[in-house]
Nucleic acid binder design. Structure first.
Length: 459
RNA sequence: GGGGCUGUAGCGCAGUUGGUUAGCGCGUCUCCCUGUCACGGAGAAGGUCGUGGGUUCGAAUCCCAUCAGCCUCGCCA
């Protein structure tokens, strides 16, 4: 007999069905045994009488079972309004144990958020079975699916960019990968697809996106991990408002399709200066207590950030992104290297419920603009060529004006799922010291592996 | 790299003027129960008190060191 899903039993009253899934809980009452059976679609009560009840008593929680039984309408006080399938139950006729389970190290038929996180991560595959985490991961899938559908509807092309790429001295610390074929040399994992996506604009795709992994070797936080996923997109022949309007339409469409309410449309736009004056920060939460409770999403844009800021040793460095254009009124100042502290960038940050949900800008698409930026940061012409010479070259081979944005997927799902921790919306997160779940990386390499990579153990 | 908090049974916790058998709840196991859905009832098992060292007649408790976890500042184009 073909397997039915648990949710479908609501429409199969009077039929004999085969269900497969996990034993969520067991309630023994002498001659009658109830189990709650769980599959990916939900949970249903199975009742066992007589001989099959004896077999059911041997079950344990999280056993994987196949149950053949009759779907019956529940009557009167037996109806359970608390659960989705509470109007029906399965009268179990045949019970097969597909796989047994040891007693789980923690109770996954309850909310696991109180359980020691180290234990949850060691057994993450069990933690992922629990209702709340399962829901978060599915919500994430749905969000990404709808974003994809929206962007495909707008004629975007999804393109993957390399994971093994070049280390960039600026920005965050790189994760590096030793090269076997070129001893002593290293790849870096991408902190962002920034340069590749700009090159895709040079390549004439005009509208690009991907769900990109960004990997940064910086200390972790509740809302920040070594790896996170971005909706990364870039468009040609656009100005700042074109990108912001498209992203805004996308977020509204996706969030509303998913049943969320948005506090203010169009999203309020505020300058960095106003934001600092009003909120003392470049991000803020506009929701009332009531709106927080009701899961309302409050988006806002912050614009006109200073392009440069002073480092501790008094040099200028970029505040957000060296590949950005300044706002048009300040382009001359950049080119001439004057009033540096006053130059504003085309950078726009999307804020959602107090989190920075994403950021982007209109990019430099001419070599002399990028060169001017690097000159402000104290680079000689030669140093600039060494760092971004490939970009300067591309910019001299027909690069259109372009701009884009990167949106943090985890931060967005945290807002949608009302979670405070990034780890709650990643399938296999790591601890704050970079220990991976389940598999215990980082780990040592064998002598053979080290030798192939021309590396020496310092231990 | 700095700061704060935490570590006691599988999970969640209580337990310090240092004191003899370290408790509670959930879970687990055994028995009873024909309608429960966090079932109920009776009983039982389960602990190197993170680790190492020290003080003491005696340490979960005091001291030193160390490890791990969470949060946070720095950091995160």
């Amino acid at each position: 007999m073909k397997r039915s899903m648990i949710k479908e039993t609501l429409e199969k009253v009077g039929e004999v069905v085969v269900l497969k899934g996990w034993v969520n809980s067991i309630r023994e009452h002498g001659k009658v045994v109830f189990i709650d059976l769980r599959d990916r679609t939900g949970m249903v009560q199975v009742v066992f009488w007589g001989e099959v009840a004896v077999a059911a008593k041997a079950l344990g929680v999280e056993y994987v079972v196949e149950i053949e039984g009759l779907v019956k309408q529940r009557s009167g006080s037996n109806v359970n309004a608390e659960i989705e399938t509470g109007s029906v139950e399965i009268e179990g006729q045949k019970l097969t144990v597909i796989n047994e389970s040891k007693t789980p190290p923690f109770e996954i038929n309850k909310d696991t958020s109180a359980v020691d996180e180290a234990v949850r991560l060691k057994y993450r595959y069990l933690d992922l079975r629990s209702a709340r985490v399962q829901k978060n991961i599915k919500l994430r899938s749905e969000f990404v699916r709808r974003v994809r559908e929206f962007l495909f509807g707008q004629d975007f092309t999804e393109i993957e960019t390399p994971l093994l790429t070049k280390s960039t001295p600026e920005g965050s610390r790189d994760f590096v990968v030793p090269s076997r074929l070129q001893p002593g040399k290293f790849y870096a994992l991408p902190q962002s697809p920034q340069q590749y996506k700009q090159l895709l604009m040079t390549a004439g795709f005009e509208k690009y996106f991907q769900t990109a992994r960004a990997i940064r070797d910086e200390d972790l936080r509740a809302d920040r991990g070594f790896e996170h996923t971005q909706i990364d997109l870039e468009m040609s022949f656009v100005e700042r408002d074109d990108v912001m309007n498209l992203v805004e339409e996308m977020m509204i469409t996706v969030a509303e399709e998913m049943g969320y309410q948005i506090k203010e449309k169009p999203f309020p736009r505020i300058t960095y200066k106003e934001s600092m004056a009003k909120y003392g920060a470049d991000k803020f939460d506009l929701r009332t207590e009531e709106e927080v409770k009701n899961g309302v999403l409050a988006f806002a844009w912050v614009v006109e950030f200073p392009f440069f800021e002073k480092t501790d040793d008094g040099k200028w460095t970029f505040s957000h992104n060296p590949f950005s254009m300044p706002i048009s009124e300040h382009l001359d100042d950049l080119m001439e290297g004057k009033n540096i502290g006053e130059i504003k960038t085309t950078q726009y940050d999307l804020i959602c419920n107090g989190y920075e949900a994403g950021g982007g800008s209109i990019r430099a698409h001419k070599a002399e603009i990028l060169e001017a930026t690097y000159k402000v940061m104290g680079y000689s012409a030669e140093e600039t060529r060494e760092s971004v010479g490939h970009m300067l070259e591309a910019f001299q081979l027909g690069t259109p004006p372009h701009g884009g944005i990167a949106l943090g997927v985890e931060r967005m799902i945290m807002n949608l799922a009302n979670e405070k921790y990034l780890r709650e919306v990643q399938a296999f997160p790591m601890t704050g010291s970079g220990q991976t779940s389940v598999m215990e990386a980082p780990s040592e390499l064998s002598e053979k592996q080290l030798k192939e990579l021309s590396l020496k153990s310092v231990m």
